[in-house]
């Protein structure tokens, strides 16, 4: 069942993104930023957690999960250390994605030549 929800949730987010791309003048950069903000908004209302429970990787595998991780990291930080925790906790969960993309992008940039 999780698999079906994973398909539906990820698919719906992508379809929404495509509708925005096709019907407005927003660029892919706008849309990815928008969906990140949407992720932290859904986390704020407690909806994103439900989506992850339902769809597992379908919800954690999209860019909105980045916003969710930022929000929950900062909130957990606040519960541990107060105001300072918002600053120190914000990136704890999303560190994997950021450092991962920095390391892998650097490695491929060292090894490969750009195709044009």
């Amino acid at each position: 069942m999780t698999f079906i929800w994973a398909f539906l949730i990820a698919g719906t987010f992508c379809a929404l993104g495509q509708i925005i791309l096709d019907n407005t003048k927003l660029t892919p950069g706008h849309v990815t930023s928008l969906f990140t903000v949407l992720g932290s908004l859904l986390a704020f209302f407690g909806i994103y957690e439900k989506l992850i429970e339902l769809g597992g990787g379908g919800a954690t595998g999209i860019i909105s999960n980045f916003g969710y991780m930022l929000y929950t990291g900062a909130l957990e930080g606040f519960h541990e250390m107060g105001i300072l925790g918002i600053f120190s906790g914000m990136l704890t969960k999303s560190s994997t994605a950021i450092v991962g993309s920095i390391i892998f992008a650097s490695i491929v940039a060292l090894i490969f030549k750009p195709k044009d």
Binding site: F7, A10, Q18, G57
Partner: peptide
């Protein structure tokens, strides 16, 4: 003419498959 409806279907299916694969790797 870009077929907007077709684009949305494509995005839905491919996005869905990516979500499905992600869940598959996790499991």
């Amino acid at each position: 003419k870009e077929n907007k409806f077709e684009n949305v279907i494509y995005a839905f299916l491919i996005g869905g498959v990516v979500g499905f694969i992600t869940e598959g790797i996790i499991v």
